[in-house]
Amino acid sequence: MVEIERHTIAVLVDNEPGVLARVIGLFSGRGYNIESLTVAEVDRANGLSRITIVTTGTPMIIEQIKAQLSRLVPVHKIRDLTDEGPFVEREMALIKIAGKGDARIESLRLADIFRARVVDSTTESFVFEMTGSSEKLNAFINLMEPLGLVEISRTGAVAISRGAASF
């Protein structure tokens, strides 16, 4: 069996209508996986957006994904952060807990340990904001499960290379 790898890929694209549909259509049309995808404008002056994609596949598929992405006309640059040395990857989540009593207190205590912030609170709910690696978010969410977890909103991963070198 060829092993499946997880790669974080950063793509710099023209911020024009349809560009995200092009990227997503490429993944669905060719049967590639998307674990997460985030996008936002990063350079207003030049009209550039940055897409961060976390994907999985065999090394041959990952190579194809990068080649196919770079073939899209509005794509400027591609970086396989996983391949190109150390990088920082972060995700943010908003997590809503509903309930009263001990469970509610316990959730607050755990949130403190995980350095989650309370961004909304009523007498019967909390909304925690938490930033970190996807694994850390998963761990926190698992702990919240029995404590009244009712809703989660996650951003998907954003990532950047470590050190002075830039895109």
Binding site: G18, G25, G29, P74
Partner: peptide, 14 residues
């Protein structure tokens, strides 16, 4: 049209 032809063109413009 741009939605329909996105996967069957090299590129398209509206």
């Amino acid at each position: 049209t741009t939605g329909i032809t996105r996967p069957c063109t090299k590129h398209n413009y509206l």
